[in-house]
Amino acid sequence: MSEATATSAKTKGKLAIYWAASCGGCEISILAIDEKILDVGNAFDIVMFPCGADGKVRDVEQMPDGAIDVCLFNGGIRTSEQEYMAQLMRRKSKVLVAFGSCASEGCIPGLGNMSDRKQIFDTVYKEGSSTYPVNPKDERPQAETKMPEGTLHLPIFYDTLKTLDQTVDVDYYLPGCPPEAENIWKAIVAILEGKLPPKGSTIGVNTTVCDECKRTRHEKKIKKFHRTWQIIPNEEECLLEQGLLCCGLATRAGCGSLCPQVNSPCIGCHGPNDGVEDFGARLMSAMASVIDSNDPEEIDGIIKDGIPDPVGTFYRFSLAKSLLRRKNKAAIAN
């Protein structure tokens, strides 16, 4: 499809872009489609884009259900307000896209699932170096505060970050942290042209980063895992074969193997291929399979020495979407 068709679309659709628990990188990535943003402007009325354009929740609430053609929703669901907004945007949108890793898989905010609300609040309001002198009485945000003027409400903060699809029904997923501008544009074009894959699909290719990676590879046998700061890898050969925990082999392609290209292992931001239930499990299984030892103690040593933080390694982006979703609450110290 030519860009001309996209820009010359006659009837303007309605587009919403919303962010929940995320960093804002997704928005920057949208703006990074450069001048094509004008084409988007030509094709859509942007009805909601809290960090890029004006638009009030109230305005959206007043729209008929399904009035928005496409909502690109980034960020995971960590608070009651975000959950409400997810429900609202779902109701008002014909197509709801989980935009970027946070909405799709939880991403870095999802690693908060290794803690619970109490632990996170302790860190922020009690142990944090920036809050310590300011909060001597160890006060915490309250959902309700009674004031002479009436009751004030704050959204409540959840123990567990949920992905968008654990909250509401999702039509499409766009991978990446953030999604590459190029892919965003391709997705927008596809939406405009109505050439969308079946509902529930991830928009993008269905191979892994290895497919785009130019490095030479052999059959893999690993005696030791290194962390990135421990070695300077050879630029020609497969990073995993050099002992770096490169997630490229399990991660959906589409980025052009961005990280391996600059001699840095893939960290898995694009999530898994279609049909994979648990990204971390795939990585774990693959990496364990090529450990070059049959001795339980040696195996244990290789794993413990090389992978001190297994969750952060295998589930850096996908903990909230994983089968277990979070750390056992019972094991979190109070």
């Binding site: 364990a288 450990i291 195996i299 297994p310």
Partner: peptide
């Protein structure tokens, strides 16, 4: 055996 060791390692981290 190798997968099992990595699995246990992860499960420990998950508080199991």
């Amino acid at each position: 055996m190798r997968r099992f060791h990595i699995l246990k390692h992860t499960l420990r981290a998950m508080g199991l």
